[in-house]
């Protein structure tokens, strides 16, 4: 049972990691916790679902469509809720509150547009199961795990080696200096938010496929987990998001398997509170990064 539960934990954790990557990307560049990321994820899931069921698209084009939709939402959010704040000097809490506003707005919009009932992808896409020595793992989960690892590596490479990645890191370091050095920071910020949101939208489709339930409030639940991972892994740290996600997934599953299942939802935040006391910069955050103190 231990191995099966470990697999359950890793598969759950990989979805957390996938979501946390989007949070991390935005935080890394803008120093903003994007509370609306969960809702963009939810919209992505719905758009993918509609493309797959109403327009009979293949699951891959639906995934692409969801990513495009996520990017569009990200652009709108940046334009309407983040850029106006950057122009005036406001406290660091303003974007947090503003994105909470976006999240509430998107959630209730989704309730209006898609209705409150949970929907799922047609069963042809249903999780195919592989059995290896009595252990069961579903195909979608392997894909999710692969994609999140792939993304982690790709993002790290991209940020470290490419021109655009370098300008993103420059912007993250210091917007004014990057501006002076000729980086179009406006463009970099828009691109980052769009990229993170596209990842969120895509994650929505994958998680929707894996868990068979797409509904308007899934954004909050998943968003909270992503948020927890963001803090666990160290704000803005890509490897941290990956490891933090896996850890949280395994911890949650083990709390059910060997502990009391009713405390499962407290695991994430219990972890955070503990961690913030012991190591506020997160598991992977470096000391120089602006810690919590």
């Amino acid at each position: 049972m231990f191995l099966q539960q470990l697999i359950n934990g890793i598969t759950l954790g990989s979805t957390y990691a996938l979501i946390a990557l989007g949070y991390t990307l935005i935080f890394g560049v803008l120093n903003i916790v994007n509370m609306a990321h969960g809702e963009i994820f939810m919209f992505g899931a719905f758009i993918g679902l509609i493309l797959a069921t109403k327009f009979n698209m293949s699951i891959f084009s639906a995934l692409l469509g969801a990513m495009v939709a996520g990017a569009v939402l990200g652009y709108l959010m940046e334009r309407l809720a983040l850029r106006p704040l950057r122009r005036r000097k406001v406290s660091e809490l303003a974007p947090l509150i503003s994105t909470i506003g976006v999240s509430i707005f998107l959630e209730s919009l989704a309730l209006r547009l898609f209705g409150p009932q949970a929907q799922s992808f047609p069963s042809i896409y249903a999780a195919q199961l592989f059995e290896v020595g009595g252990l069961k793992i579903s195909a979608v989960q392997i894909i999710i795990l692969a994609i999140s690892f792939g993304l982690m590596v790709a993002l790290r490479f991209w940020l470290a080696k490419t021109r655009l990645g370098k300008s993103i890191r420059a912007t993250a370091e210091n917007i004014e200096t990057a501006n002076l050095l000729g980086v179009d920071t406006q463009k970099v910020i828009v691109l980052t938010v769009m990229l993170a949101s596209a990842l969120g939208g895509g994650a929505g489709v994958l998680v929707g496929l894996a868990f068979n339930a797409i509904e308007p409030t899934m954004g909050i639940t998943m968003g909270f987990k992503g948020l927890a991972v963001l803090i666990l892994g160290g704000l803005g740290n890509i490897t941290g998001a990956m490891v933090g996600g896996l850890l949280l997934g395994i911890a949650e599953i083990f709390s059910v398997a060997y502990g009391v299942s009713s405390y499962r939802d407290a695991v994430a935040f219990g972890f955070i509170i503990l961690l913030l006391f012991l190591r506020p910069q997160g598991i992977f955050g470096s000391k120089e990064q602006q810690g919590g103190r």
């Binding site: 539960q5 868990f211 899934m218 398997a257």
Partner: peptide
């Protein structure tokens, strides 16, 4: 075993029960 409304992952509880 317990779960919560809006949960989507029940693998841990059911794996435990299955044994």
């Amino acid at each position: 075993e317990t779960f919560a409304d809006k949960n989507t992952d029940f693998s841990a509880q059911l794996t435990k029960i299955a044994t």
